[in-house]
């Protein structure tokens, strides 16, 4: 039997090759893919998040850990789809119009995938119309926006207003984040949730889709 603790370690250490190999072996041995995700990979990303908060890890370590997780997910996702497991939700994510800072957004996107969400990454500098189009055409049920500039924060409100105008606001939950965003600001602009980090973003997304 594969030692699944090694999967946890591979993700924490950002070793994509090992994460892939261990996952492959475990799946061949008949381990349930969801066990791999929920009992090993998600706890690993929680630990990575903890180390980041404690200044033991920095952005490069976060990015390689997320990449290791993705390399395992690449094997797992097709299996879940094949057996008819539905994604927890479908997220349209992007940085708001005018904002090009995407490191945080990319991390949130990776972790949401790890958490069982289907993620449609719209990239950077995403205008409200693009979010609306994705909600309409791809049936996204979460819109997740990231902003790192005080000058682009207002684009979050503009986007929420545009979702209302387009008549799709009540089909989606809106999540916001990024360094200058606060709980209070999220409330003011009528978002459904805010988290200050990527690990929290997954818990938040799960909470809002369950609500």
């Amino acid at each position: 039997m594969t030692d699944l603790k090694k999967l946890y370690e591979a993700v924490v250490n950002g070793d994509a090759k090992a994460a892939h190999a261990i996952t492959q072996q475990a799946l061949a041995e008949g381990v349930d893919p969801l066990v791999l995700v929920n009992q090993h990979m998600i706890p690993a990303m929680d630990e990575v998040g903890r180390r980041f908060e404690a200044s033991e890890y920095f952005v490069p370590e976060l990015l390689i850990a997320a990449r290791a997780m993705k390399s395992a997910l690449d094997l797992i996702r097709p299996l879940l789809v094949a057996r008819g497991d539905k994604p927890v939700g479908r997220v349209a994510i992007g940085t708001v119009k005018g904002d090009l800072h995407d490191i945080g957004k990319n991390l949130v996107a990776s972790l949401l995938e790890g958490g069982g969400f289907e993620v449609i990454d719209l990239g950077v500098n995403v205008p409200p119309e693009k979010f609306i189009e994705t909600v309409r055409e791809k049936q996204a049920n979460i819109v997740a926006m990231s902003a790192l500039l005080t000058t682009t924060m207002p684009a979050m409100k503009t986007t929420i207003d545009a979702l209302k105008q387009a008549g799709v606001r009540n089909q989606v939950k809106v999540l916001v984040g990024g360094a200058p965003i606060t709980e209070k600001y999220a409330e003011e602009i009528g978002a459904d949730g805010y988290s200050e980090n990527a690990v929290g973003a997954v818990a938040l997304a799960k909470k809002v889709v369950a609500a």
Partner: peptide, 10 residues
């Protein structure tokens, strides 16, 4: 590309 450079270190 900043995202790529971050992983190049490793």
């Amino acid at each position: 590309g900043i995202n790529t450079l971050m992983t190049d270190f490793f």
